[in-house]
Design a protein around this nucleic acid. Structure first.
Ligand SMILES: [Mn+2]
Length: 277
DNA sequence: ATCGAGTGGATAT
DNA sequence: TCCACTCGAT
């Protein structure tokens, strides 16, 4: 899921880059999207339990693409299931079941531990480095970049920005080009009218976003771990935080303007605890 | 304007 | 594992 609507919201902060820009460097690669895309090529076989290895082709091709540009791939796999993500996991399992009933095999694709293990065996043979994250790959990718083990993360997941990953590459194409968003670059993100989103409204505004408001915005707009607040997306969360300048005042503002059923209390409690407030 | 639910898509020839 | 797009509701 990621943070719904976040990438379009901050797209002005993205720049076109080439893998050539990372020649001689390491990129931490999100294995899950590559595996899913690969699995589509043999979705029916996988759905019917037939032996299949075709799903390996796409990830191996992407690794070859990186190597061709002199980039060292560090493949990051999802590890254990996150207890807090059980709600989303259950919803996806139900979606897969109904898709199977309708014969839409593309939507039944589930990456199993056995499939992950097959790719890992190939990586071992090929001498490609990899790590298995304790839980989701998202936070592991951010960690690797934050600590200098990789120059950037290569993924499709907007959650990497919520995890404050310093540099993220999205939408890699066969030509070796991608869109890069750096966390620091968010300071210059603009709205459609050219106005800065996270700086310039008051003295030191960017420092406040960098120091926690941006993460709070992502959580308020909805994450996989909590039921989202109805009617609040990225834009509304951004406006409330900008007007309130603190999470507490932003939440109070949203409460006061709220119509309809009361907002879930649990989400707010978790948010405040997550932010240490 | 903004949200969110629904739909379609990612492969490969 | 995710995203982009459309469209009705608010
Ligand atoms: Mn994620």
């Amino acid at each position: 899921m990621g943070v719904q609507g976040l990438l379009p919201f901050v797209s002005s902060a993205s720049t076109e880059v080439s893998l050539e820009d990372y020649r001689g460097q390491t990129l931490a690669c999100d294995a899950s999207v590559w595996l899913h895309r690969g699995a589509i090529s043999c979705a029916r076989e996988l759905a019917e339990g037939e032996p299949a290895v075709g799903f390996l082709r796409f990830p191996l091709r992407m690794i070859a693409l990186l190597k061709r540009h002199g980039v060292r791939p560090l493949i990051v796999f999802d590890g254990g299931a996150m207890p807090m993500k059980a709600r989303v996991d259950a919803a996806r399992a139900a979606d897969r079941e109904s898709a199977k009933a309708r014969g839409e095999f593309n939507k039944t694709v589930k990456i199993t531990a056995a499939m992950t293990q097959q790719l890992i065996e190939r990586l071992r043979q090929d001498g490609v480095e990899f790590v298995v994250a304790p839980f989701e790959a998202d936070s592991q990718l951010a960690f690797l970049v934050q600590h200098g083990h990789a120059a950037a993360a290569l993924t499709e997941d907007s959650d990497l920005l919520a995890y404050r990953c310093p540099s993220v590459l999205f939408k890699l194409s066969e030509s070796g080009h991608a869109r890069r968003i750096t966390f620091a670059g968010l300071q210059h993100a603009q709205d459609s009218k050219g106005q800065l989103l996270f700086d310039g409204a008051w003295e030191g505004e960017w420092a406040a976003w960098e120091g926690g408001l941006f993460v709070a915005m992502c959580i308020m707009a909805g994450c996989d771990y909590l039921p989202s607040v109805p009617g609040v997306g990225v834009a509304t969360a951004h406006k409330a935080l900008r007007a309130g300048r603190t999470v507490e005042r932003a939440l109070a503002k949203l409460h006061s303007k709220r119509s309809g059923p009361p907002a879930p209390v649990a989400a707010e409690a978790y948010l405040l605890r997550a932010l240490g407030l």
